[in-house]
Amino acid sequence: MRAPFRSLWSGFGLVALLLVSSDAHAQPSAWGDNGYVSINALYGVTTETNEVSSRQDLYQETAEITARQEIGKRPVFDVTAGGRIKGRFGMGFGVSYAVADDQAAVTAAIPNPFYFDRPRTLDGSTTLERSDLMVHVQAMWLLPITDTVQLTVFGGPTWFQVKQQTIESLVIDDVFPFDTVSLVSTERERATVSAWGVNGGFDVSYFFSKNVGVQGLVRYSRGTATIGATGVDSDVTVGGLHAGAGLRIRY
């Protein structure tokens, strides 16, 4: 996930240059009389490897379980509203929501029923649902480029609420001589956690009437959430690079 991060911020540099050079054309009305609201269909274009560990008491020992998912490539629904504070500077709030069932690769160290410290490796897969609610607080800098096209650059803190299905226990096929073990199914539970992170990005909007336009939006957000499963805490990276388009209404 570091490459998109870097490219995003180098993009920011370009935008900043643009802003400076276009300064003379700034139109305060570009914010709308009271503000604007946009509804956006975004898509997660980057993925994060999400590893959530859990434990299960088994055969007088503990089975160590890891569920590994690639989280990110999925639709993101977004509503953002903002308004001018002074000049080109404004303030906005964005709410994004994404939910998906993702395949998780399950690996586990399953104790031997007869002997201590002789775990066997289990590999399997299961589906774990994950939803992310992101509330972005954005400081915005709006720059009209032409009469109908404008660019907004923004950044600020993000509050994440993550609902992650985790593995509570494994149902396994395990018979004599207990050399190998296979996964039959998983018993799952859901963890709900929240965390603070940051966001930054830009949008380019085109207005085809006084109040209604379309826009393209790119937003990167990032945070670290701690997901607890069966008493084990796992840190997972939340957010990602979301890009898409939507309707923008000034009022």
């Binding site: 055969y59 007088q60 029923p113 007869f114 002997y115 201590f116």
Partner: peptide, 12 residues
Amino acid sequence: GRGTGVLGDNKK
């Protein structure tokens, strides 16, 4: 189950 053997060792 688990238990302690004659020589004090822990076994299943």
